[in-house]
Amino acid sequence: MTEEKPTRVLIAKPGLDGHDRGAKVVALGLRDAGFEVIYTGIRQTPEMIVHAAVQEDVDVMGLSCLSGAHKTLFPKVVELLRQSGRQDVLVIGGGIIPEDDVPLLMERGVQAIFPSGTLISRIADYIRDKVQR
C-alpha cells in the first residue's frame, strides 16, 4: 500500500530571514507526495543543518532562503556535507533566487533551484527521478 522505504528529505532554512511560509508549503507538499520530511525550523546555521542531515541520514536536502544570502549559505552547506562524508546527499534550493545566481549555485554543488511559483509536483518528480532510480 504505502512505499516500503520512504525517501527522507530535510527541509531547512539557513540564515537569518524568518520567512518560512515557502519552506512549510514545500514540506507539507512533499509529505503529501509520500516523503518523510524533517523540518528543522528557521534561523539555522549551515553547521546545524548538516549536523541534522547526517544524524537523520537524509537522501535529500532542500534549502530555502529569502534573505539574499543564498550565494554564501547554499555552497557552505554543500561544502560541509562533503566534509562530513555525505556528498551523496541531493541538495536542492528554493526561495528568492535571482536567475543570474543559478549557474554559480549549480557550479558550487547545488543540484537544482526551484524558484517561487514552482509546482510541488515538479519538485517531487525531480526527487523521485534522482533518488529512487
Binding site: 500500500m1 504505502t2 520512504p6 512533499l30 509529505r31 518523510e36 520530511v37 524533517i38 523540518y39 539555522q44
Partner: peptide, 17 residues
C-alpha cells in the same frame, strides 16, 4: 506517517536545537 500517502512531517528537532 500518513495512512494515505505514507509521507510524514517530522518536526520534533525544532525543539531540540
Amino acid at each position: 506517517s500518513s495512512p494515505f500517502t505514507g509521507g510524514a512531517l517530522l518536526g520534533d528537532r525544532i525543539r531540540m536545537q
